[in-house]
Design a protein around this nucleic acid. Structure first.
Length: 560
DNA sequence: GAGTTTGAAACT
DNA sequence: CAGTTTCAAACTC
Protein backbone atom coordinates (compact mmCIF):
# COMPACT_ATOMS: atom_id res chain seq x y z
CA UNK A 1 0.00 0.00 0.00
CA UNK A 2 1.32 3.37 -0.91
CA UNK A 3 0.24 6.69 0.33
CA UNK A 4 1.05 9.84 -1.43
CA UNK A 5 -0.31 13.25 -1.95
CA UNK A 6 -1.27 14.69 -5.22
CA UNK A 7 -2.48 18.22 -5.27
CA UNK A 8 -4.48 18.64 -2.15
CA UNK A 9 -5.74 15.14 -1.97
CA UNK A 10 -4.13 12.25 -0.26
CA UNK A 11 -4.38 8.98 -2.04
CA UNK A 12 -4.00 5.48 -0.96
CA UNK A 13 -3.15 3.09 -3.68
CA UNK A 14 -2.91 -0.59 -3.57
CA UNK A 15 -0.27 -1.35 -6.05
CA UNK A 16 0.20 -5.01 -5.56
CA UNK A 17 -3.08 -6.47 -6.57
CA UNK A 18 -2.05 -9.98 -5.82
CA UNK A 19 -1.44 -8.84 -2.31
CA UNK A 20 -4.99 -7.84 -2.06
CA UNK A 21 -6.26 -10.97 -3.67
CA UNK A 22 -4.27 -13.03 -1.29
CA UNK A 23 -6.01 -11.34 1.52
CA UNK A 24 -2.78 -10.09 2.97
CA UNK A 25 -3.75 -6.53 2.50
CA UNK A 26 -4.49 -4.84 5.75
CA UNK A 27 -8.05 -5.18 6.69
CA UNK A 28 -7.99 -1.60 7.62
CA UNK A 29 -6.04 1.47 6.88
CA UNK A 30 -6.02 4.99 8.08
CA UNK A 31 -6.97 8.03 6.19
CA UNK A 32 -3.80 9.96 5.56
CA UNK A 33 -5.78 13.14 5.86
CA UNK A 34 -7.67 12.57 9.02
CA UNK A 35 -6.06 9.57 10.55
CA UNK A 36 -9.42 7.94 10.68
CA UNK A 37 -9.48 4.25 10.35
CA UNK A 38 -11.09 2.50 7.47
CA UNK A 39 -11.82 -1.05 6.78
CA UNK A 40 -11.69 -2.57 3.40
CA UNK A 41 -14.02 -5.28 2.55
CA UNK A 42 -11.56 -7.73 1.20
CA UNK A 43 -13.77 -10.63 0.58
CA UNK A 44 -11.84 -11.92 -2.35
CA UNK A 45 -13.36 -15.33 -2.38
CA UNK A 46 -16.18 -14.22 -4.56
CA UNK A 47 -13.95 -14.40 -7.52
CA UNK A 48 -14.44 -10.89 -8.59
CA UNK A 49 -13.31 -7.55 -7.43
CA UNK A 50 -15.43 -6.27 -4.69
CA UNK A 51 -13.34 -3.77 -2.93
CA UNK A 52 -15.50 -1.50 -0.96
CA UNK A 53 -15.28 0.64 2.03
CA UNK A 54 -17.03 -0.70 4.99
CA UNK A 55 -15.39 0.77 7.98
CA UNK A 56 -16.52 1.36 11.45
CA UNK A 57 -15.78 4.97 10.93
CA UNK A 58 -16.82 7.15 8.10
CA UNK A 59 -14.53 8.99 5.79
CA UNK A 60 -14.07 12.53 6.74
CA UNK A 61 -14.05 15.72 4.90
CA UNK A 62 -11.30 16.04 2.39
CA UNK A 63 -10.44 12.42 2.26
CA UNK A 64 -9.88 11.10 -1.19
CA UNK A 65 -8.84 7.60 -1.82
CA UNK A 66 -7.85 5.76 -4.83
CA UNK A 67 -8.15 2.07 -4.58
CA UNK A 68 -7.26 -0.50 -7.08
CA UNK A 69 -9.04 -3.74 -7.18
CA UNK A 70 -8.48 -6.49 -9.67
CA UNK A 71 -11.02 -7.76 -12.08
CA UNK A 72 -11.42 -11.36 -12.85
CA UNK A 73 -8.35 -11.32 -15.01
CA UNK A 74 -6.31 -9.73 -12.31
CA UNK A 75 -6.19 -6.40 -14.02
CA UNK A 76 -6.34 -3.49 -11.73
CA UNK A 77 -9.51 -1.57 -11.98
CA UNK A 78 -9.14 1.91 -10.79
CA UNK A 79 -11.51 3.22 -8.28
CA UNK A 80 -11.54 6.77 -7.21
CA UNK A 81 -13.24 7.45 -4.01
CA UNK A 82 -13.46 11.03 -2.97
CA UNK A 83 -14.99 12.50 0.08
CA UNK A 84 -15.41 16.21 0.04
CA UNK A 85 -18.12 16.64 2.55
CA UNK A 86 -19.62 17.33 4.82
CA UNK A 87 -21.71 19.63 2.82
CA UNK A 88 -25.26 19.95 1.87
CA UNK A 89 -24.36 18.67 -1.50
CA UNK A 90 -22.97 15.23 -1.13
CA UNK A 91 -19.45 14.50 -2.15
CA UNK A 92 -18.75 12.47 -5.16
CA UNK A 93 -16.46 9.75 -6.01
CA UNK A 94 -15.85 7.77 -9.09
CA UNK A 95 -16.07 4.09 -9.03
CA UNK A 96 -15.98 1.38 -11.52
CA UNK A 97 -19.03 -0.76 -11.31
CA UNK A 98 -17.03 -3.89 -11.04
CA UNK A 99 -15.65 -2.64 -7.80
CA UNK A 100 -19.04 -2.48 -6.29
CA UNK A 101 -21.00 -5.53 -7.07
CA UNK A 102 -22.90 -4.96 -3.91
CA UNK A 103 -24.61 -2.05 -5.46
CA UNK A 104 -25.12 -3.96 -8.63
CA UNK A 105 -23.75 -1.39 -10.96
CA UNK A 106 -21.74 -4.03 -12.71
CA UNK A 107 -24.82 -5.26 -14.37
CA UNK A 108 -25.90 -1.85 -15.40
CA UNK A 109 -23.06 0.09 -16.84
CA UNK A 110 -19.83 -0.76 -18.46
CA UNK A 111 -18.34 2.54 -17.47
CA UNK A 112 -17.66 4.10 -14.14
CA UNK A 113 -20.34 6.23 -12.74
CA UNK A 114 -20.70 8.78 -10.06
CA UNK A 115 -21.29 7.81 -6.54
CA UNK A 116 -22.22 10.14 -3.83
CA UNK A 117 -22.02 9.79 -0.16
CA UNK A 118 -23.08 12.28 2.45
CA UNK A 119 -20.42 11.69 4.98
CA UNK A 120 -21.89 13.80 7.67
CA UNK A 121 -25.04 11.83 7.71
CA UNK A 122 -23.74 8.35 8.06
CA UNK A 123 -25.26 6.88 11.14
CA UNK A 124 -23.47 4.77 13.59
CA UNK A 125 -24.02 1.29 12.40
CA UNK A 126 -21.43 -0.73 14.11
CA UNK A 127 -20.33 -2.22 10.86
CA UNK A 128 -19.49 1.04 9.28
CA UNK A 129 -20.44 3.04 6.31
CA UNK A 130 -22.93 1.70 3.92
CA UNK A 131 -23.04 3.03 0.46
CA UNK A 132 -25.48 5.76 -0.07
CA UNK A 133 -25.98 6.02 -3.76
CA UNK A 134 -27.80 8.84 -5.39
CA UNK A 135 -31.24 8.49 -6.71
CA UNK A 136 -29.61 7.90 -10.00
CA UNK A 137 -27.62 5.02 -8.69
CA UNK A 138 -30.62 3.75 -6.87
CA UNK A 139 -32.33 3.68 -10.17
CA UNK A 140 -29.43 1.79 -11.60
CA UNK A 141 -29.52 -0.66 -8.83
CA UNK A 142 -33.19 -1.20 -9.02
CA UNK A 143 -32.97 -1.46 -12.74
CA UNK A 144 -30.42 -4.10 -12.16
CA UNK A 145 -32.79 -5.77 -9.89
CA UNK A 146 -35.43 -5.70 -12.52
CA UNK A 147 -33.35 -6.13 -15.60
CA UNK A 148 -33.91 -9.34 -17.38
CA UNK A 149 -36.69 -9.87 -14.97
CA UNK A 150 -40.35 -9.65 -15.06
CA UNK A 151 -42.37 -8.96 -12.02
CA UNK A 152 -45.10 -11.13 -10.82
CA UNK A 153 -47.12 -10.35 -7.81
CA UNK A 154 -47.66 -13.22 -5.48
CA UNK A 155 -49.76 -12.04 -2.70
CA UNK A 156 -49.87 -8.63 -1.24
CA UNK A 157 -46.54 -6.97 -1.31
CA UNK A 158 -44.66 -10.03 -2.41
CA UNK A 159 -43.07 -10.10 -5.79
CA UNK A 160 -41.11 -12.69 -7.52
CA UNK A 161 -38.70 -11.45 -10.03
CA UNK A 162 -37.91 -13.87 -12.73
CA UNK A 163 -35.47 -13.89 -15.48
CA UNK A 164 -36.96 -13.91 -18.89
CA UNK A 165 -36.03 -17.54 -18.99
CA UNK A 166 -38.62 -18.05 -16.34
CA UNK A 167 -36.34 -19.00 -13.53
CA UNK A 168 -36.92 -16.99 -10.42
CA UNK A 169 -33.90 -15.15 -9.20
CA UNK A 170 -35.14 -12.90 -6.53
CA UNK A 171 -38.08 -12.42 -4.32
CA UNK A 172 -38.91 -9.22 -2.65
CA UNK A 173 -41.43 -8.11 -0.22
CA UNK A 174 -42.62 -4.63 0.26
CA UNK A 175 -44.03 -3.43 3.48
CA UNK A 176 -44.89 -0.17 4.93
CA UNK A 177 -42.49 1.09 7.48
CA UNK A 178 -42.74 3.50 10.28
CA UNK A 179 -41.37 6.92 9.66
CA UNK A 180 -37.68 7.04 9.27
CA UNK A 181 -35.46 9.83 10.29
CA UNK A 182 -33.03 11.51 8.11
CA UNK A 183 -29.77 12.86 9.36
CA UNK A 184 -31.26 16.22 10.03
CA UNK A 185 -33.70 14.64 12.36
CA UNK A 186 -36.52 15.33 10.04
CA UNK A 187 -39.13 12.76 9.61
CA UNK A 188 -39.07 11.49 6.11
CA UNK A 189 -42.56 10.27 6.41
CA UNK A 190 -43.61 13.80 6.95
CA UNK A 191 -42.39 14.64 3.54
CA UNK A 192 -44.25 12.06 1.67
CA UNK A 193 -46.78 9.33 1.83
CA UNK A 194 -46.32 5.75 2.74
CA UNK A 195 -42.85 4.65 3.54
CA UNK A 196 -42.07 1.21 2.38
CA UNK A 197 -39.24 -1.14 2.75
CA UNK A 198 -38.25 -3.37 -0.10
CA UNK A 199 -36.25 -6.34 0.81
CA UNK A 200 -35.08 -9.26 -1.15
CA UNK A 201 -35.68 -12.24 1.00
CA UNK A 202 -33.01 -14.16 -0.77
CA UNK A 203 -30.05 -11.97 -0.30
CA UNK A 204 -31.20 -9.27 2.01
CA UNK A 205 -31.21 -6.48 -0.50
CA UNK A 206 -33.06 -3.64 1.05
CA UNK A 207 -34.55 -0.49 -0.25
CA UNK A 208 -36.63 2.06 1.46
CA UNK A 209 -39.15 3.73 -0.69
CA UNK A 210 -42.26 5.68 -0.42
CA UNK A 211 -44.86 6.33 -3.00
CA UNK A 212 -42.89 9.05 -4.60
CA UNK A 213 -39.40 8.69 -3.40
CA UNK A 214 -36.98 5.91 -3.31
CA UNK A 215 -35.15 6.63 -0.16
CA UNK A 216 -32.54 4.12 0.60
CA UNK A 217 -31.05 0.95 -0.56
CA UNK A 218 -28.69 -1.51 0.90
CA UNK A 219 -27.05 -4.57 -0.54
CA UNK A 220 -28.47 -5.36 -3.89
CA UNK A 221 -26.05 -8.11 -4.45
CA UNK A 222 -28.55 -10.75 -5.29
CA UNK A 223 -29.08 -9.31 -8.68
CA UNK A 224 -25.57 -9.89 -9.79
CA UNK A 225 -25.49 -12.22 -12.69
CA UNK A 226 -24.31 -15.57 -11.60
CA UNK A 227 -24.38 -14.62 -7.99
CA UNK A 228 -28.00 -14.98 -7.25
CA UNK A 229 -29.36 -17.75 -5.22
CA UNK A 230 -32.46 -19.28 -6.50
CA UNK A 231 -34.98 -18.64 -3.83
CA UNK A 232 -36.99 -21.73 -4.42
CA UNK A 233 -34.17 -24.01 -5.35
CA UNK A 234 -31.45 -23.22 -2.94
CA UNK A 235 -30.54 -26.76 -2.35
CA UNK A 236 -29.97 -27.51 -5.97
CA UNK A 237 -29.73 -24.23 -7.70
CA UNK A 238 -29.40 -24.18 -11.37
CA UNK A 239 -26.02 -23.50 -12.78
CA UNK A 240 -27.23 -20.44 -14.52
CA UNK A 241 -28.12 -18.89 -11.26
CA UNK A 242 -25.56 -20.19 -8.95
CA UNK A 243 -22.65 -18.94 -10.90
CA UNK A 244 -19.22 -19.93 -9.70
CA UNK A 245 -19.49 -22.04 -6.59
CA UNK A 246 -17.36 -19.72 -4.59
CA UNK A 247 -19.73 -16.90 -5.25
CA UNK A 248 -22.67 -18.65 -3.86
CA UNK A 249 -20.72 -20.07 -1.02
CA UNK A 250 -19.66 -16.68 -0.01
CA UNK A 251 -23.10 -15.43 -0.46
CA UNK A 252 -24.49 -18.05 1.79
CA UNK A 253 -21.88 -17.64 4.41
CA UNK A 254 -21.90 -13.96 4.81
CA UNK A 255 -24.74 -11.77 3.96
CA UNK A 256 -24.95 -8.33 5.32
CA UNK A 257 -28.46 -7.43 6.00
CA UNK A 258 -29.22 -4.05 7.34
CA UNK A 259 -25.84 -3.66 8.81
CA UNK A 260 -25.81 -6.93 10.61
CA UNK A 261 -24.17 -10.13 9.76
CA UNK A 262 -26.89 -12.67 9.56
CA UNK A 263 -27.11 -16.31 8.87
CA UNK A 264 -28.02 -17.28 5.41
CA UNK A 265 -31.35 -18.66 4.59
CA UNK A 266 -31.26 -22.30 5.48
CA UNK A 267 -30.84 -24.42 2.46
CA UNK A 268 -34.08 -25.72 1.19
CA UNK A 269 -36.20 -23.60 3.39
CA UNK A 270 -38.46 -21.01 2.09
CA UNK A 271 -36.96 -17.62 2.29
CA UNK A 272 -38.15 -15.49 5.07
CA UNK A 273 -40.58 -13.02 3.70
CA UNK A 274 -41.50 -11.15 6.82
CA UNK A 275 -39.66 -8.00 7.39
CA UNK A 276 -38.51 -7.00 10.76
CA UNK A 277 -40.56 -4.29 12.28
CA UNK A 278 -39.50 -0.79 11.70
CA UNK A 279 -38.40 -0.33 15.22
CA UNK A 280 -36.56 -3.57 15.24
CA UNK A 281 -33.09 -3.36 16.68
CA UNK A 282 -31.94 -5.23 13.64
CA UNK A 283 -32.53 -2.12 11.64
CA UNK A 284 -30.17 0.28 13.25
CA UNK A 285 -29.75 2.58 10.34
CA UNK A 286 -33.41 3.04 9.83
CA UNK A 287 -33.58 4.83 13.11
CA UNK A 288 -31.35 7.49 11.79
CA UNK A 289 -31.34 7.02 8.11
CA UNK A 290 -29.47 9.66 6.23
CA UNK A 291 -31.14 11.86 3.78
CA UNK A 292 -30.90 10.60 0.30
CA UNK A 293 -31.02 12.28 -2.95
CA UNK A 294 -34.46 11.33 -3.91
CA UNK A 295 -36.10 10.77 -7.18
CA UNK A 296 -39.53 12.08 -7.45
CA UNK A 297 -41.95 10.06 -9.40
CA UNK A 298 -45.13 11.86 -9.92
CA UNK A 299 -47.43 9.12 -10.92
CA UNK A 300 -50.06 8.58 -8.31
CA UNK A 301 -49.83 5.04 -7.08
CA UNK A 302 -53.43 4.40 -7.90
CA UNK A 303 -52.67 4.84 -11.54
CA UNK A 304 -50.31 1.95 -11.58
CA UNK A 305 -51.47 -0.90 -13.68
CA UNK A 306 -49.04 -3.65 -13.06
CA UNK A 307 -46.15 -4.77 -11.00
CA UNK A 308 -45.85 -3.13 -7.67
CA UNK A 309 -48.79 -2.51 -5.51
CA UNK A 310 -50.02 0.90 -4.68
CA UNK A 311 -48.36 0.88 -1.33
CA UNK A 312 -45.11 -0.32 -2.69
CA UNK A 313 -42.38 0.71 -4.97
CA UNK A 314 -44.18 2.75 -7.54
CA UNK A 315 -44.16 1.81 -11.13
CA UNK A 316 -42.70 5.05 -12.30
CA UNK A 317 -39.74 4.44 -10.10
CA UNK A 318 -39.27 1.09 -11.70
CA UNK A 319 -39.54 2.78 -14.99
CA UNK A 320 -36.98 5.23 -13.99
CA UNK A 321 -34.68 2.53 -12.86
CA UNK A 322 -34.63 1.29 -16.36
CA UNK A 323 -34.50 4.88 -17.41
CA UNK A 324 -37.69 5.52 -18.98
CA UNK A 325 -37.19 7.86 -16.15
CA UNK A 326 -40.51 8.70 -14.70
CA UNK A 327 -41.80 9.03 -18.15
CA UNK A 328 -44.65 6.72 -17.57
CA UNK A 329 -47.70 8.76 -17.15
CA UNK A 330 -51.30 7.88 -17.41
CA UNK A 331 -52.94 9.06 -20.55
CA UNK A 332 -56.44 10.28 -20.91
CA UNK A 333 -57.68 6.75 -20.67
CA UNK A 334 -55.78 6.12 -17.55
CA UNK A 335 -53.31 3.91 -19.29
CA UNK A 336 -49.67 4.31 -18.74
CA UNK A 337 -47.83 5.75 -21.63
CA UNK A 338 -44.29 6.71 -22.31
CA UNK A 339 -45.22 10.13 -23.49
CA UNK A 340 -44.88 12.15 -20.44
CA UNK A 341 -46.18 15.64 -20.75
CA UNK A 342 -43.39 18.03 -20.13
CA UNK A 343 -44.46 20.37 -17.49
CA UNK A 344 -42.82 23.73 -17.51
CA UNK A 345 -42.09 25.00 -14.09
CA UNK A 346 -42.52 28.52 -13.05
CA UNK A 347 -39.66 30.74 -13.86
CA UNK A 348 -37.49 31.43 -10.93
CA UNK A 349 -38.85 28.46 -9.21
CA UNK A 350 -35.68 28.05 -7.39
CA UNK A 351 -33.25 25.87 -9.12
CA UNK A 352 -32.87 23.64 -6.18
CA UNK A 353 -31.28 20.31 -6.65
CA UNK A 354 -32.90 17.21 -5.54
CA UNK A 355 -31.15 17.67 -2.31
CA UNK A 356 -33.55 20.45 -1.77
CA UNK A 357 -37.04 19.78 -0.80
CA UNK A 358 -38.34 22.19 -3.34
CA UNK A 359 -39.19 21.49 -6.89
CA UNK A 360 -36.40 21.17 -9.32
CA UNK A 361 -36.08 23.48 -12.23
CA UNK A 362 -36.58 22.01 -15.61
CA UNK A 363 -34.00 22.82 -18.19
CA UNK A 364 -34.75 23.72 -21.75
CA UNK A 365 -31.52 22.87 -23.45
CA UNK A 366 -31.75 22.59 -27.18
CA UNK A 367 -28.26 21.98 -28.43
CA UNK A 368 -26.08 20.84 -25.62
CA UNK A 369 -27.74 17.48 -25.23
CA UNK A 370 -27.74 18.41 -21.57
CA UNK A 371 -24.24 17.10 -21.30
CA UNK A 372 -22.52 20.38 -20.82
CA UNK A 373 -22.50 22.85 -18.06
CA UNK A 374 -24.85 25.01 -19.97
CA UNK A 375 -27.42 22.61 -18.67
CA UNK A 376 -28.29 23.30 -15.09
CA UNK A 377 -29.42 19.76 -14.52
CA UNK A 378 -26.15 18.36 -15.70
CA UNK A 379 -24.18 21.00 -13.84
CA UNK A 380 -25.99 20.03 -10.67
CA UNK A 381 -25.20 16.42 -11.27
CA UNK A 382 -28.78 15.58 -11.91
CA UNK A 383 -30.55 13.64 -14.53
CA UNK A 384 -33.00 15.47 -16.66
CA UNK A 385 -36.37 14.55 -15.40
CA UNK A 386 -39.47 16.29 -16.60
CA UNK A 387 -37.38 18.81 -18.43
CA UNK A 388 -38.18 20.56 -21.64
CA UNK A 389 -34.90 19.77 -23.26
CA UNK A 390 -34.40 18.37 -26.70
CA UNK A 391 -32.21 15.49 -27.69
CA UNK A 392 -31.36 14.97 -24.09
CA UNK A 393 -28.53 12.64 -23.21
CA UNK A 394 -28.56 13.43 -19.54
CA UNK A 395 -30.32 10.25 -18.63
CA UNK A 396 -29.44 6.66 -18.02
CA UNK A 397 -30.46 5.68 -21.48
CA UNK A 398 -27.32 7.46 -22.49
CA UNK A 399 -25.31 6.55 -19.46
CA UNK A 400 -22.23 5.97 -21.50
CA UNK A 401 -22.31 9.37 -23.13
CA UNK A 402 -23.20 10.94 -19.87
CA UNK A 403 -20.32 9.33 -18.14
CA UNK A 404 -17.98 10.54 -20.81
CA UNK A 405 -19.27 14.05 -20.43
CA UNK A 406 -18.87 13.89 -16.68
CA UNK A 407 -15.40 12.60 -17.10
CA UNK A 408 -14.49 15.42 -19.43
CA UNK A 409 -15.84 17.96 -17.02
CA UNK A 410 -13.99 16.46 -14.11
CA UNK A 411 -10.80 16.36 -16.09
CA UNK A 412 -11.23 19.99 -16.87
CA UNK A 413 -12.15 20.84 -13.35
CA UNK A 414 -12.07 18.25 -10.58
CA UNK A 415 -14.37 20.44 -8.54
CA UNK A 416 -16.75 20.97 -11.38
CA UNK A 417 -19.57 19.28 -9.60
CA UNK A 418 -18.91 20.78 -6.27
CA UNK A 419 -21.41 23.34 -5.13
CA UNK A 420 -20.61 26.80 -6.25
CA UNK A 421 -21.80 28.44 -3.12
CA UNK A 422 -19.47 28.09 -0.24
CA UNK A 423 -20.38 27.74 3.37
CA UNK A 424 -19.20 31.09 4.44
CA UNK A 425 -21.98 33.30 5.52
CA UNK A 426 -22.31 36.98 5.22
CA UNK A 427 -25.04 38.33 7.32
CA UNK A 428 -28.35 36.97 6.25
CA UNK A 429 -27.26 35.97 2.86
CA UNK A 430 -25.89 32.61 2.01
CA UNK A 431 -22.30 31.75 1.42
CA UNK A 432 -20.06 33.06 -1.23
CA UNK A 433 -19.89 32.04 -4.78
CA UNK A 434 -16.70 30.09 -4.96
CA UNK A 435 -15.73 31.20 -8.41
CA UNK A 436 -17.18 34.63 -8.35
CA UNK A 437 -19.02 36.28 -11.16
CA UNK A 438 -17.79 38.31 -14.11
CA UNK A 439 -20.77 40.50 -14.72
CA UNK A 440 -20.29 43.66 -16.70
CA UNK A 441 -23.67 45.10 -17.41
CA UNK A 442 -26.10 43.74 -14.95
CA UNK A 443 -24.60 45.42 -11.93
CA UNK A 444 -24.82 42.03 -10.31
CA UNK A 445 -28.35 42.88 -9.36
CA UNK A 446 -30.12 40.62 -11.77
CA UNK A 447 -30.35 36.94 -12.04
CA UNK A 448 -27.83 36.95 -14.81
CA UNK A 449 -25.37 37.26 -11.99
CA UNK A 450 -24.68 33.92 -10.38
CA UNK A 451 -23.87 35.54 -7.08
CA UNK A 452 -27.09 37.49 -7.06
CA UNK A 453 -29.08 34.52 -8.22
CA UNK A 454 -27.59 32.47 -5.43
CA UNK A 455 -28.52 35.16 -2.96
CA UNK A 456 -24.93 35.92 -2.17
CA UNK A 457 -23.07 39.15 -2.26
CA UNK A 458 -20.17 39.55 -4.56
CA UNK A 459 -16.76 39.07 -3.11
CA UNK A 460 -13.17 39.64 -3.89
CA UNK A 461 -13.19 36.56 -6.05
CA UNK A 462 -15.57 38.25 -8.44
CA UNK A 463 -14.40 40.02 -11.53
CA UNK A 464 -17.51 42.03 -11.95
CA UNK A 465 -17.70 45.61 -13.08
CA UNK A 466 -20.13 48.11 -11.71
CA UNK A 467 -21.16 45.80 -8.96
CA UNK A 468 -24.04 46.79 -6.76
CA UNK A 469 -24.42 43.44 -5.14
CA UNK A 470 -23.21 44.14 -1.66
CA UNK A 471 -24.71 44.04 1.74
CA UNK A 472 -26.59 47.20 2.53
CA UNK A 473 -25.68 47.24 6.17
CA UNK A 474 -22.12 46.99 5.16
CA UNK A 475 -22.36 50.02 3.02
CA UNK A 476 -23.33 52.15 5.92
CA UNK A 477 -20.67 50.98 8.23
CA UNK A 478 -17.81 50.18 6.01
CA UNK A 479 -17.98 52.98 3.57
CA UNK A 480 -15.90 52.43 0.55
CA UNK A 481 -15.63 48.74 1.01
CA UNK A 482 -19.32 48.39 0.76
CA UNK A 483 -19.21 49.17 -2.88
CA UNK A 484 -17.86 45.72 -3.40
CA UNK A 485 -14.21 45.16 -3.04
CA UNK A 486 -13.69 44.27 -6.61
CA UNK A 487 -15.60 47.10 -8.07
CA UNK A 488 -14.14 49.39 -5.49
CA UNK A 489 -10.66 48.92 -6.74
CA UNK A 490 -11.70 49.13 -10.31
CA UNK A 491 -13.39 52.39 -9.67
CA UNK A 492 -10.11 54.06 -8.86
CA UNK A 493 -8.85 53.63 -12.31
CA UNK A 494 -9.68 57.11 -13.33
CA UNK A 495 -8.01 58.72 -10.39
CA UNK A 496 -4.96 56.60 -10.42
CA UNK A 497 -3.75 57.96 -13.67
CA UNK A 498 -3.71 61.37 -12.13
CA UNK A 499 -1.24 60.48 -9.45
CA UNK A 500 1.64 58.65 -10.81
CA UNK A 501 2.79 56.13 -13.30
CA UNK A 502 4.19 54.00 -10.56
CA UNK A 503 2.12 50.86 -10.06
CA UNK A 504 2.29 51.40 -6.34
CA UNK A 505 0.33 54.55 -6.80
CA UNK A 506 -2.77 52.46 -7.03
CA UNK A 507 -2.45 51.95 -3.30
CA UNK A 508 -4.30 55.06 -2.46
CA UNK A 509 -5.78 55.80 0.90
CA UNK A 510 -9.09 54.66 -0.43
CA UNK A 511 -7.65 51.38 -1.52
CA UNK A 512 -6.04 50.95 1.87
CA UNK A 513 -9.33 51.73 3.50
CA UNK A 514 -11.09 49.29 1.27
CA UNK A 515 -8.56 46.63 2.02
CA UNK A 516 -8.89 47.23 5.71
CA UNK A 517 -12.60 47.00 5.32
CA UNK A 518 -12.18 43.63 3.73
CA UNK A 519 -9.98 42.41 6.51
CA UNK A 520 -12.21 43.74 9.23
CA UNK A 521 -15.17 42.14 7.60
CA UNK A 522 -13.28 38.93 7.37
CA UNK A 523 -12.37 39.12 11.03
CA UNK A 524 -15.93 39.83 11.99
CA UNK A 525 -17.08 36.94 9.93
CA UNK A 526 -14.57 34.66 11.55
CA UNK A 527 -15.70 35.82 14.94
CA UNK A 528 -19.30 35.32 14.07
CA UNK A 529 -18.60 31.85 12.79
CA UNK A 530 -16.76 30.99 15.93
CA UNK A 531 -13.47 30.21 14.26
CA UNK A 532 -10.46 29.61 16.39
CA UNK A 533 -7.79 32.31 16.36
CA UNK A 534 -5.54 30.32 14.03
CA UNK A 535 -8.42 29.71 11.70
CA UNK A 536 -9.37 33.35 11.78
CA UNK A 537 -5.81 34.36 11.20
CA UNK A 538 -5.56 32.11 8.20
CA UNK A 539 -8.81 33.39 6.84
CA UNK A 540 -7.75 37.00 7.21
CA UNK A 541 -4.42 36.35 5.62
CA UNK A 542 -6.08 34.68 2.71
CA UNK A 543 -8.33 37.66 2.33
CA UNK A 544 -5.36 39.96 2.48
CA UNK A 545 -3.68 37.94 -0.17
CA UNK A 546 -6.66 38.26 -2.40
CA UNK A 547 -6.73 41.98 -1.87
CA UNK A 548 -3.07 42.27 -2.69
CA UNK A 549 -3.53 40.19 -5.78
CA UNK A 550 -6.25 42.48 -6.96
CA UNK A 551 -4.29 45.58 -6.22
CA UNK A 552 -1.30 44.28 -8.07
CA UNK A 553 -3.36 43.08 -10.96
CA UNK A 554 -5.19 46.29 -11.45
CA UNK A 555 -2.13 48.34 -10.74
CA UNK A 556 -0.33 46.57 -13.52
CA UNK A 557 -3.32 46.87 -15.79
CA UNK A 558 -3.36 50.58 -15.28
CA UNK A 559 0.26 51.24 -15.97
CA UNK A 560 1.05 48.76 -18.62
C1' DG B 1 -44.41 34.03 -27.09
C1' DA B 2 -40.84 36.14 -29.78
C1' DG B 3 -36.91 38.68 -29.63
C1' DT B 4 -33.09 40.64 -26.97
C1' DT B 5 -29.72 40.73 -23.41
C1' DT B 6 -26.61 38.64 -20.52
C1' DG B 7 -22.83 36.03 -18.74
C1' DA B 8 -21.08 31.29 -18.11
C1' DA B 9 -19.10 27.69 -20.60
C1' DA B 10 -16.83 26.07 -24.43
C1' DC B 11 -13.87 26.71 -27.98
C1' DT B 12 -9.86 28.53 -30.63
C1' DC C 1 -4.35 32.76 -21.30
C1' DA C 2 -7.02 35.93 -23.91
C1' DG C 3 -10.36 36.56 -27.33
C1' DT C 4 -14.32 34.61 -29.60
C1' DT C 5 -18.24 31.72 -30.09
C1' DT C 6 -21.88 29.03 -28.29
C1' DC C 7 -25.40 28.31 -25.30
C1' DA C 8 -29.34 28.72 -22.31
C1' DA C 9 -31.42 31.50 -18.91
C1' DA C 10 -33.13 35.95 -17.78
C1' DC C 11 -35.33 39.62 -19.27
C1' DT C 12 -38.21 42.88 -22.19
C1' DC C 13 -41.84 43.98 -25.00
Amino acid sequence: MKTFTEDKHPYVIYEDLSQRSAGSLPQSYSSPASGQKFFTNLNSSRGHSDTSLEGDECPSQGDVFELRCPDDQGNGTCLLFGIHGPSFHPPRHLATPSCFPNVTLSAMASEPTLFEMPVESVPEMGLGCPWFPTGEELCDAAACMTSRCKEEQRGEGVFVKEETSGEPVCQTRIEKCQPTLDHMGENLAMKGPDMCQVRCSVCGAVMLVNNTKLVQMNDMQCVLPGQVLNASEQQVPSASHRGPPELSDTHEKETFILGQMVSPTPAGSHPTMVLPGPASPSLPFIQAAPTFPTVTCDVPPETLKRGWSSNSLPEPCISQFSQTACNVFPDSKGLLTETQPKIPLERNQHSGTYWDSGARKACQCMKSQCLKFYCDCFANGELCIRCNCANCYNNMEHAHERYKAIKICLERNPDAFQPKIGNRKWGKVKGRHNMGCSCKRSGCTKNYCECYEANTICSSTCKCVGCKNYEEGFKKTKGVYARCKNDNILSYKGNLYQYSKCPLACITSDVVEATCGCLIACAEEAEKEGYTPPQAEKMILQEFGQCLTQIIRYGLDLFM
